[in-house]
Design a protein around this nucleic acid. Sequence first.
DNA 1: TTTATTTAGTATCTTGACGAAACCAAATAT
DNA 2: ATATTTGGTTTCGTCAAGATACTAAATAAA
Lengths: 165, 165
Amino acid sequence: MRNNQFPSQTCSVARALEIVGEWWTLLIIREAFFGARRFGEFERNLGVAKNVLSERLSKLVACGVMERIDVPGRGNPRDYRLTEKGRDLFPVLVALMQWGDRWAAAAGPPLRLLDPATGAEIAPLRVTGSSGAALEPQELLIAPGPGADEKVRRRFPPASEILPR
Amino acid sequence: MRNNQFPSQTCSVARALEIVGEWWTLLIIREAFFGARRFGEFERNLGVAKNVLSERLSKLVACGVMERIDVPGRGNPRDYRLTEKGRDLFPVLVALMQWGDRWAAAAGPPLRLLDPATGAEIAPLRVTGSSGAALEPQELLIAPGPGADEKVRRRFPPASEILPR
DNA sequence: TTTATTTAGTATCTTGACGAAACCAAATAT
DNA sequence: ATATTTGGTTTCGTCAAGATACTAAATAAA
């Protein structure tokens, strides 16, 4: 997008993408999960231009996904660390990684995430109800929530009208 | 990104983002999950420019995430439908939506996804091992998979070296 | 105390993507 | 035959992305 973000979208997907949907941003966060902390580490591991990296890190710090911590040493070294808000993006990255593993990895998955207790790969993410049973996208009901605006309400009838009693 | 995509990244996250990481693309897919099928529906619901929408839909069809089906009617109407590859992106969207609900929805979630059996909201996505126990990002082991290249292998030691026996 | 080196950035510039608006073509309802 | 609807393509101006070169601050080394 340009100056304007996704304009007036009352949708958490759009809002999330306004924060982490820019080029490089999710890869920077991936690097952070893989242990990168320093500006130079992100730069080398990703091959991203310095100005872009600088701007993305600043934005991530500004919106609370990462925090910047000065550390002693030559130069003016800082650590960039994920905050709780940032660590909470882990399911997003795992979902993307699992999809890429399945649909864009002809030679097999480049990386595996292992449960340290068993050494086995983590389970595929599944959308489930509270019972734990998997739910298919087309069977879910979509209802307005407390943050819905008029436009959303017009589009999606409230749960009381669509749920069988 | 520019002409070049994320260059030479042997990583399923990067590969997934090359396909669905452009502006608007995930919102187009969100609309498809919400039931949109026609060019005009996507255009109206998203407020995206026609040329951008046209280009994104073409790319999605070209890479197998959506399919285009001519339908009878005035004009030259077509349906754009998610393929299995596209429907398999559902966890990605749910992960983004849940994160946005938690961290970017001051007035509460705009939309709720409900289990039709119970009327209750779907469960938060969790990264788990095969046992179903939740796993935190920092405790996971990262090991090269069959698709790893030399660069990845240098960076991440094989599981046999990091797993306790 | 001076110098060199490392880190983490800014400044500049070119290219190209984004978005608005206008235009167009095919199909069909009337 | 005509008008309307759908789904685009074309054109064009603007602004941001990205590569490269330059810079500032801190400190380790001499």
